[in-house]
Computed example of a mutant assay.
Amino acid sequence: MPISAAETVKCQDGDEHWHGATGTTLMAHIALVVSGGKPATWLEPVADEQYDSVLPHS
């Protein structure tokens, strides 16, 4: 799901998700844990080819 500048994305405890920039876009990521929530479990990096394969193509 592409996001726009200044958009906030909320993930529920246990949700797996990934994100990143492309060759023509930037991405800044700030992770917050709400009181009583579980800390993030960081999964393995995704190769550029895998990331590119799921991007919407115009």
Rank of each mutant, 00 (worst) to 15 (best):
G14W: 00
L55I: 10
L43G: 15
G37D: 05
I30K: 13
A28C: 08
L55T: 06
W18H: 11
I30L: 15
V54M: 10
V34M: 05
I30S: 12
Q12G: 10
Q12L: 10
D48S: 13
I30A: 13
V46C: 07
M1F: 07
P2R: 06
I3A: 07
H19K: 01
H29V: 15
A5H: 08
S53F: 04
D15V: 08
Y51I: 00
K10S: 05
M27L: 15
A31G: 10
E7T: 01
H29M: 10
V46G: 02
T41C: 01
P2K: 03
V34F: 02
I30G: 08
V33E: 14
E16A: 14
A21Q: 12
G36V: 07
A31N: 08
A6D: 11
D13Y: 01
S53E: 07
H17K: 04
I30E: 09
Q12N: 12
A5K: 12
Y51L: 10
P45D: 09
G36P: 05
E44V: 02
T22C: 07
S35M: 04
T25A: 07
A31H: 11
W42K: 08
M1Q: 08
A40M: 12
Y51K: 05
G14F: 00
Q12E: 14
I30Q: 13
D52G: 03
V34T: 02
E49S: 15
E49I: 13
H19W: 02
A40H: 12
L43K: 11
V9T: 06
G23W: 07
G20T: 06
L43T: 01
S35A: 14
E16W: 12
G23K: 13
L43C: 06
P39Q: 05
A40V: 14
S4G: 02
Y51T: 01
T24S: 14
A47K: 15
P39C: 03
V34H: 03
K38A: 08
A6K: 10
C11V: 14
V33Y: 03
V33D: 11
A28Y: 09
S58P: 14
I3R: 01
W42D: 06
K38P: 00
A31K: 06
I3Y: 09
D15S: 07
